[in-house]
C-alpha cells in the first residue's frame, strides 16, 4: 500500500513548526508516524503537506528534577519513557502504559505527543479506500451522515483507545500547547480532550503539543496502569485503568483514577477518587470504588466486545489497579 503524494517539510526548531503550520493549510505533523501513516495509506487522511518534526532534538527530552517534576518533550519516544528509571520509579503508571503499547518497534517510533493526540478508532472508520468504495453511506467521522456502531446515533461513537492518557490523568499531568501566534498555553491533560469522538482533542490545525509536565508526586504515592487487550502485544486495549494513590498516615490522601477505551475520550473517574480520598484503603473500600467505576461508565460496544463486558472489565481493572498502587 502506497502513501498518497504530498510535499515534505522539515522544520529544525519549534518556531518553524508554527510558521509552517500557519503558512500551509492542509498540513499534518508527523513524528513517529505510527498512527498517521497507516491512515494516509488508507486514504483516510490525504494532506497536501507533511511536516516532519523529528529533527527537533529539543522536543525529545525526558527530564526529571524533584522540584520541577517530570518534563517530557512531545517527541520523547514511548520506549524511552517506559525505560526511564525515574519514570519507572516515580511515575510507574506512565511507564507501564507506555511500555505496553503495541510492539517494541512501534514504541521505538511512537512518541508521547502522538499517543495523547491519537484519534479515536472504529471498524467503520479505520478502513482503506478500497473498502470504502462500494459503501452507500459514510460514517460521521469520514464526513458522512450516520454512525454504524449505534444506529440512530446523532454523533460519532468511535472509541478512544490510547494507553498513556489515563496514566497521565491519574498522575495529574499538564500539556503545553503552542498556538498559531507562538504563544504557549498550559492545560490539564483532562481538558485536552473534547469527549467527542469526531474530534477527540482541542488542538486546532495550527496548534501543536510541545511538552507534558507531571509534578513530582508527594511521598507515599504509587501508581499503576493495567491494560487488557485481546493479545499481549500489538493490540489497543479493550479497557485500561490507571490509579495513582497517595497514602499518608494510613489514609488515602489523594487519588487519581482514570480509564481508557470506554468512550469518546479518556475518562477521569472523580466519583471513584472521592470514595477513596480521606479513608483507609480496605478491600471493601476498593470494591466500593470499583463499583462506582462500573456505575459511572457508559461504554459503547465495539466490534465483538459488548458494553456489558467492558463495564465488568473496568470494575476489575479499577479494583486491581488501586490495589497494586497501594501495595
Amino acid at each position: 500500500m502506497r502513501l498518497p503524494k504530498f510535499e515534505y517539510l522539515e522544520p529544525t526548531n519549534v518556531k518553524e513548526i508554527t510558521s509552517l503550520l500557519k503558512k500551509n493549510a492542509d498540513a499534518i505533523l508527523v513524528a513517529g508516524g505510527t498512527d498517521i501513516l497507516p491512515k494516509m495509506k488508507q486514504r483516510i487522511v490525504t494532506p497536501k503537506f507533511v511536516i516532519n518534526v523529528t529533527k527537533i532534538e529539543d522536543l525529545k527530552k525526558i527530564e526529571f528534577g524533584e522540584k520541577k517534576g517530570l518534563i517530557l518533550g512531545s517527541l520523547a519516544t514511548l520506549d524511552n519513557i517506559s525505560k526511564s528509571k525515574q519514570v519507572i520509579e516515580k511515575f510507574t503508571a506512565l511507564a507501564q502504559a507506555a511500555g505496553r503499547i503495541a510492539s517494541p518497534q512501534l514504541r521505538n517510533m511512537g512518541t508521547i505527543g502522538g499517543n495523547i493526540s491519537i484519534e479515536s478508532m472504529c471498524m467503520y472508520f479505520n478502513q482503506s479506500h478500497e473498502w470504502r468504495k462500494g459503501r452507500p453511506h459514510l460514517c460521521f467521522k469520514l464526513g458522512g451522515d450516520r454512525c454504524f456502531v449505534a444506529k440512530g446515533s446523532k454523533e460519532c461513537l468511535a472509541l478512544f483507545q490510547a494507553d498513556t492518557p489515563p496514566a497521565l490523568i491519574a498522575l495529574g499531568a499538564t500539556v503545553t500547547i503552542v498556538g498559531s501566534t507562538g504563544k504557549e498555553k498550559i492545560i490539564n491533560i483532562e481538558d485536552f480532550y473534547t469527549q467527542k469522538s469526531k474530534k477527540v482533542n482541542i488542538l486546532k490545525p495550527t496548534d501543536f503539543v510541545k511538552q507534558i509536565h507531571i509534578p513530582t508526586p508527594p511521598k507515599g504515592t504509587k501508581s499503576c496502569y493495567l491494560k487488557m487487550a485481546q493479545r499481549a502485544a500489538i493490540d489497543y486495549p479493550i479497557a485500561g485503568a490507571a490509579a495513582c494513590i497517595t497514602i499518608s498516615g494510613n489514609k488515602c490522601k489523594n487519588a487519581g483514577i482514570a480509564v481508557t477505551s470506554v468512550g469518546s475520550g479518556p475518562l477521569r473517574l472523580k466519583e471513584v477518587e472521592d470514595i477513596l480520598i480521606g479513608n483507609s484503603i480496605t478491600d471493601e473500600l476498593i470494591a466500593k470504588a470499583a463499583d462506582a467505576a462500573y456505575e459511572k461508565i457508559r461504554p459503547m460496544p465495539h466490534f465483538n466486545i459488548s458494553a456489558w463486558y467492558k463495564r465488568k472489565l473496568i470494575r476489575v481493572l479499577v479494583k486491581r489497579s488501586i490495589k497494586q498502587a497501594c501495595i
Binding site: 510492539s103 471498524m123 485481546q230 493479545r231 499481549a232 502485544a233 500489538i234 493490540d235
Partner: peptide, 11 residues
C-alpha cells in the same frame, strides 16, 4: 493484522 489477530510471541 490489527483486526485479524494472529497470536504473538507473548500469547
Amino acid at each position: 493484522f490489527l483486526d485479524y489477530k494472529l497470536p504473538t510471541s507473548e500469547d
